[in-house]
Design a binder for these strands. Sequence first.
DNA 1: GAACGATTGCAACTCATCGTTGCAATCCAA
DNA 2: TTGGATTGCAACGATGAGTTGCAATCGTTC
Lengths: 208, 208
Amino acid sequence: MQWSAPPMTATRRAPRRDAGRPRGAPVAEAVLAATLRELASAGVEGLSVERIAREAEVNKTSIYRRWPTREALVAAALEGVAAQITGQLPDTGSLRGDLLALVGAVSDLVGSPLGRGLLRAALTESAEAAVAALATDQLARGTAGPARAIVARAKARGEWARGARGDMVVHALVGAVIHRAVLEHGALDRRWLGSLVDLMLHGALPRE
Amino acid sequence: MQWSAPPMTATRRAPRRDAGRPRGAPVAEAVLAATLRELASAGVEGLSVERIAREAEVNKTSIYRRWPTREALVAAALEGVAAQITGQLPDTGSLRGDLLALVGAVSDLVGSPLGRGLLRAALTESAEAAVAALATDQLARGTAGPARAIVARAKARGEWARGARGDMVVHALVGAVIHRAVLEHGALDRRWLGSLVDLMLHGALPRE
DNA sequence: GAACGATTGCAACTCATCGTTGCAATCCAA
DNA sequence: TTGGATTGCAACGATGAGTTGCAATCGTTC
């Protein structure tokens, strides 16, 4: 018999690009970053490991070996992002300035893949309850700390009404930004944020 | 020749349950209601036509014949739900009462499959932009109308600060409820809602 | 009552993607 | 040099999406 082609076991035409070559940590970082982006664009239920692999320029198998389930992968990507949510907020010396800095940080967040990924992950239900709980926890941890500091400073300056609840002010501010940006796709310029903070400071009723 | 069994073309053992029998409108209603529930539990990207078919007790084929694409199915399910979002809000005679009724309706909504389905649909991106736009439009249409009416009545009674923006008050209230219920999984009792409305009415600053 | 169109169920199919597995290639450390 | 760990790659079975052909049933019309 004549063989014009290589033997049947393998043709071995391509000389392999860069198989092998362990590269450790950079792989994990690229995968987790791509996971956050995928979370933002496709949500937890629509998440595709193959897309993440292409995005991170890593083979699908490498992802499955490190994180056996999708849930583990998402959990790893969400782990420890609380610190990046608002970062360090400055003490501006006034409640209005502090709240402006807060809503500015929040509006930056909801425009970023990290923020939208967190929001969408927190909104999942049923099967992925653990993921939703983790995202919720990170969101709460990232906003509760700065919020408490702002309210404490305001109270020390006498800039706080007796009955007002600090967490509720933050809920309303953050919720308004989310409503405006994510649900309504409206612009978040400084004037809009300023008006929002003023509304929260003075209320909707006329000051007799 | 003797045939102890039916001919080879088909055994025809089961006498069919209820094939045929067109039942028109009830099929569409059941499917669209199941689609909203599926939207709430799985989101747009995780939506499964087979699950909807099982849930609605309808064959998968019947769904594909009426709505050729998933997008068409979701759009049909979202069509015209704006009217059910808040329903008819009463004129309570005071701004506080009107806003309490509004946040009560919103908190009922976010606890329902319709509300969570709308929220999750509005949060989708990229590939399903048309669906997100439709959900956003329904949400806006369902809240903007009642909100304008409430603000107009308050202004007529003199219960409105000059600088306050009506849409912003609604954004903050609705956003706070969403933040509390969907992102934080907190309870929405009457006391919490009352405090929220009072905060929006009087503001966080002390009234000198 | 018979015929016809519309609607539905059902089973089978193709196709894409998911998650897994075996193997070879490569790097690092002993 | 050897061995373990990491990666790429191709292939596989399983699962679900969307389609198609066919039979059964209903309502309407003649």
